[in-house]
């Protein structure tokens, strides 16, 4: 999928209550990340979840290098590493604040109901090593209803605007 496909207008559910519900879920995920409650954050992800940060607007994960493309096992390893006390690239840990907007539910048929294809724009401000950096991107969450009336993340894609520039340290979790 190209970036232009990803950001094209999508006609999905206009149900205000459903939209508010998924937006609240995204806010919840962001709050867990900003508070470094990583074990709880990991619990939001399904066992078959995929977490993908492409490098470049037209990245094909089969043939191109990505910033990351994690299955649940590697995602758990990331949390393990960040919690180990020896992940020096996060010592001290980045302070992050997620700002979330443009939340909508896509209805272009890529995701089978009852799962939802949720798009948002997120601006992540990161403070570390005496610097404040900005990351912004188009985010995509594929959410499935969980047994308790909430949501489980099946897939998360983070298309950063600067993903193909030389970057420093993106080892905090976006």
């Amino acid at each position: 999928m190209s970036a232009s496909e990803t950001v094209r207008p999508v006609a999905g559910s206009q149900d205000p209550a459903l939209l508010a519900d998924v937006a609240a879920f995204l806010y919840h995920e962001a709050e867990l990340l900003d508070a470094l409650r990583l074990e709880e954050w990991l619990e939001l992800y399904a066992e078959d979840a995929v977490y993908w940060i492409p490098q470049g607007p037209d990245a094909d994960p089969r043939v191109d290098v990505q910033l990351l493309l994690d299955d649940r096992t590697r995602l758990r390893e990331r949390v393990l590493r960040l919690s180990s006390g020896f992940a020096y690239s996060q010592d001290p840990a980045s302070r992050t604040i997620h700002l979330i907007g443009n939340v909508r539910i896509a209805g272009d048929g890529e995701v089978e109901p009852p799962a939802l294809d949720v798009r948002s724009v997120q601006q992540v401000t990161e403070v570390r090593r005496g610097r404040q950096l900005q990351y912004v991107g188009h985010f995509r969450h594929v959410l499935s209803p969980s047994g308790d009336g909430g949501w489980t993340i099946r897939r998360k894609e983070v298309r950063l605007a600067n993903s193909d520039l030389p970057l420093g340290n993106v080892t905090f979790l976006i």
Binding site: V65, L67, L68, Y88, G168
Partner: peptide, 21 residues
């Protein structure tokens, strides 16, 4: 590719520790 990304690159689990230290 996936093995490389696990350690290297700006979001890797190894290379950024070299950058930091």
């Amino acid at each position: 590719l996936r093995t490389h990304e696990g350690f290297y690159g700006p979001a890797g689990m190894g290379g950024p520790d070299d950058v930091e230290i």
